[in-house]
Amino acid sequence: MRRDPVPAAIALLALLLLAGALVLPDWLRFLLLLAFAKGLAVLGVVTLMRGGLVSFGQGLYFGLGGYAAGMTGHFTGFSDVFGLLLLGIAVSVAVALVLGLVMARYREIFFAMLSLAFSMVFYGVLVRSEVLGSTDGSNLPQPTFLGYAPEAATGRVLLYLLTVLVVAVAAFLVHRWYRSLWGHLAEAARENEVRVEYLGASVFRVHYADYLLAAATAGAGGVLTAVAVGHVDPTLTYWTTSGEFVFVALVGGTGSVFAPFAGAVLLELVRTFAFAWLPYSWQMILGAVMLLVILFLPGGLWSLVAGREART
């Protein structure tokens, strides 16, 4: 049996990216950080997609993570990044534990719409709640690292390093998850749920587990985004944010744990340049790319429904 090359590749890429902190210009490092944070949410969307579920509301957990960090920082002044990360993930997973009980029973467009609805409920709460900062959101204090409070520039580098590490760990764990029995069951459930049940496995539990995992990674991504930007507002959880996650997941495909991050980086790069060169055409570019992928590369990048479509 050949050794799985993915963990080594993750480690190598992580080392390169860590070393990159020394040479990358500020703007690019910041862009990578944001892209990776977003990639964490996309990783969750991809995980669900492997099981045949499309979440149009992953912004819910992205926003929950972000607001968990944002509100804690805003009200208590607590600024330790590790603490905030754990808190953000815990809040996301706690909510997912409850909502997942409902969500894991739904499929296809109903799953998509219900996930959208839950994220919009949260958005509505945020926008209407003065305490949570309403539409303006609120600011976070400067991040600290286990008691170490660096000056702003150093803090930004440290946060980037931490993000790369979080991404590497998440990618590794999720990759192992895909290769585990659960991962295979999820893929089998996408093809044929009845058969999975015949195997004695519970499709509900497979989807439920994936849902929790997706909430955890999205929550982590939300925390990192909030801390890096130093600000949270309701757009974190708006459905267009969720739509962007789906976009990256779709274009990147569900084949590998690298795709969400590569896709997110590409998206942020294109966004940066599109804004400069072609105002008001950013979404148009996204839409056009998406159409082209769906129409002309259905097999390559869109493995989600390949099996299912053949049956219908």
């Binding site: 499309v54 296809e108 467009i109 998509a112 739509g243 789906v246 779709l250 008001y280 055409s281 950013w282 979404q283 148009m284 996204l286 839409g287 056009a288 998406m290 159409l291 769906i294 129409l295 259905p298 869109w302 989600l304 429904v305 299912r308 479509e309 219908t312």
Partner: peptide, 24 residues
């Protein structure tokens, strides 16, 4: 050009159209 494909794919196609039209 998309008929006969999965409902989710069609949902994404119209999402792409929505993005394009918003900017148009």
């Amino acid at each position: 050009f998309t008929y006969g494909r999965h409902e989710l794919v069609l949902l994404l196609v119209t999402y792409a159209l929505f993005l394009i039209l918003e900017d148009l």
